[in-house]
Amino acid sequence: MTELTFQLNNEDETIAVGQTLARHIQAPLTLYLTGDLGAGKTTLSRGLIQGLGHKGAVKSPTYTLVEPYELDGVEVYHFDLYRLNDPEELEFMGIRDYFTDNSLCIVEWPDKGEGLLPDADIHLHLNYVNQGREIHIRALTDSGKTLLAAIK
């Protein structure tokens, strides 16, 4: 299994996909989230992070670039690279230090960090379809395939 697609009629369904991922996810794993502004990338991230046990709010790291969470033995790093002007800025923030054997890295707008980010295990693309949204999930590594098989 390398690809899945879900129709999402509302925000709750987007959060539910994130929570489903959380039930089966294991570090290390890198997820790329792509899609238009407002398509639901941060909403999906919120469902995933809260599904992993975070009890507080999940804010978009648009201005900080990364928001860390220590959850149940795994380090979760939520990146939003939308405002990144130059991928070299990632070198200055020590980007390589975030991608460890104990980390789950969720990267919104990964194209902004091209050349400095590790390859994704899973690529999630959200897009508008009529009044709702659609999420297309593609596994790019064996770890990604294992995750997709578990959520199928």
Rank of each mutant, 00 (worst) to 15 (best):
N130F: 10
D36T: 11
K41M: 08
P110W: 12
L31S: 10
L21M: 06
L52W: 07
Q50F: 08
A57C: 04
R23C: 01
C105D: 01
G94Y: 09
G53R: 03
D97C: 14
L147V: 10
N102A: 10
G53M: 06
T30F: 05
T5K: 14
C105G: 04
T42G: 10
E108C: 09
V76D: 08
M93I: 15
D101W: 03
I122A: 02
H54D: 04
Y98V: 09
Y69V: 05
D101I: 03
Y63V: 09
A150I: 09
V66Q: 11
T20W: 03
N9L: 13
L116N: 12
L44W: 15
A150E: 14
T20H: 08
Y63E: 11
D119E: 13
I95M: 14
I151C: 02
E13K: 07
D119S: 14
L65V: 14
K145S: 06
D111G: 09
G40L: 09
V107F: 02
E75P: 00
L21T: 05
V74E: 00
F92Y: 13
L147C: 13
G144D: 11
E108D: 07
Y82Q: 01
V76Q: 07
G73W: 02
L90S: 06
W109K: 13
G115M: 14
L124S: 00
M1P: 01
L21Y: 04
Q19T: 13
L117G: 08
L31I: 15
G56N: 14
T30G: 09
L104D: 01
P118L: 12
A27R: 08
L81Y: 01
W109Q: 13
C105E: 00
N127V: 11
I122P: 00
I151G: 03
Y63R: 10
I15E: 04
D36S: 14
Y77V: 00
Q26V: 08
G40R: 06
D121K: 04
L71A: 05
G51Q: 10
F79L: 08
Y98C: 08
A120V: 00
L117E: 10
Y77I: 00
T2Q: 11
S143Y: 03
P61I: 12
A149M: 07
D72C: 09
L90I: 02
P118G: 12
F6M: 11
H136I: 10
N10S: 05
R133E: 03
G73S: 06
I151P: 01
L84N: 01
I106R: 00
H123Y: 06
L148E: 08
L4W: 03
F6Q: 11
E134D: 05
C105I: 00
H125Q: 14
L90D: 07
E91A: 14
G47E: 07
G38C: 06
K59E: 07
Y63A: 12
D97S: 15
T43C: 12
E70L: 12
L48D: 15
L90H: 04
E114I: 06
I95V: 15
D12Q: 15
W109D: 06
T2S: 13
T43Y: 01
G53L: 06
S103D: 09
D80V: 01
T30I: 11
E89Q: 15
